[in-house]
Design a protein around this nucleic acid. Structure first.
Lengths: 196, 196
DNA sequence: GTATAACCGGACATGCTGTCCACTTGTTGA
DNA sequence: TCAACAAGTGGACAGCATGTCCGGTTATAC
């Protein structure tokens, strides 16, 4: 979780009251996002729920999307860590198609529990401009390169497209949708990477 | 292009001034959408450009998205007509993978010339709730059923996901992106439907 | 030619955004 | 310990978009 806004080099430590407010904001935002559709969440909602003024909120987060992204960050980082260390199904010894499936599984799980946050983090900007998307994309691309697939950059975008939050919610709203999506993606991974 | 709003049974004919205004609105909207990002287009912009009052605009179109959809409608209808009549690559005698590719080609072409409108028609609601999406989905699903693919409903959503307008724009912004996307989708169609 | 209904456009109330500014509080250094 | 300074805070404000309402206007039917 990012501690301070932009100053990359460590400036003076964060003040105690600011840290306290950050937590208040994050906790309050969690509840707000749980209580109504993400596109209806306003900065005012979050500020009021946290018991702080609007300017205090804007000081750290420029938009509702930024708040959602901050909430999402720790969950996404956990997956990124697993990828880097090769834990779970991400071991480099496994074939690319299985590692792609491992990513699919992890992202489905993330969407299942935090779809509202993902949707919220995409308000007003494209999914592709978020930092997390870049990580997933880089990983998928490396798998495709390893398998010798052409146009890996584009194919990586195509293979990640079915994990858009709005599509996930649409499919999940159907009976057995969640399970069928998992099975379908597993077949897709095998289809594209193993040619079967 | 839908002539009147809701009254499905033909009521009294549309008044001449109303018809004139509809054309003014549609023409003006085309230019407005061409002049700025679709998510920045307001009802006020369109009304002013058309030289009509806001209420006049609201009378027929409840939102900016509805205006964009009206503009898009004739282009989408053209594709739907080709599907129904089996023109172009949609002949039922061709294998499903080739017909899926024909749909991909048609939709890529549509996005290429009207991406802003597609994006505009998705403002404030999911792509999946638009009428056009339902048509593409039904067609893809029938192709999958014909090929004996399981969970055809879900797979159809997955296969249409790469044609989301925002993904298209993202990929097209890269060098050769448009061409690579076409090739990639062609391979995807073959991969999934022909198992190669 | 008149009655009627559809149509029109400006005005209005509401809600959200992002910024500004005067006040408060924590932190640093003498 | 305490003063001085910087960071943090919250309410208020202006700007903008939305969606509706209503008095006036114009086309169509009789």
């Amino acid at each position: 979780m990012p501690r301070r806004p932009l100053p990359l080099a460590e400036g003076p430590a964060e003040r105690a009251d600011a840290a306290r407010n950050r937590q208040k904001v994050l906790n309050a935002a969690r509840e707000v996002f749980a209580s109504k559709p993400p596109d209806q969440v306003t900065m005012d909602d979050i500020a009021r729920a946290a018991g702080v003024g609007r300017a205090t909120l804007y000081r750290r987060y420029p938009s509702v999307a930024a708040v959602a992204e901050a909430l999402l960050d720790e969950h996404e980082s956990a997956i990124q860590h697993r990828i880097l260390t090769g834990e779970g199904g991400f071991s480099p010894t496994r074939p690319p198609s299985e590692r792609l499936w491992a990513l699919y599984e992890a992202l489905l799980e993330l969407l299942d529990t935090h779809a509202a946050l993902v949707l919220g983090s995409e308000i007003g900007r494209a999914r592709y401009s978020t930092g997390a998307y870049g990580v997933w994309h880089t990983y998928v691309r490396s798998l495709l390169d390893e398998a010798g697939i052409e146009h890996s950059r584009t194919m990586a975008d195509v293979l990640l497209a079915p994990l858009a939050a709005d599509l996930f919610l649409h499919v999940r709203s159907r009976r057995n949708g969640r399970r069928q999506l998992a099975e379908t993606l597993r077949r897709l991974a095998a289809s594209v990477l193993d040619g079967r």
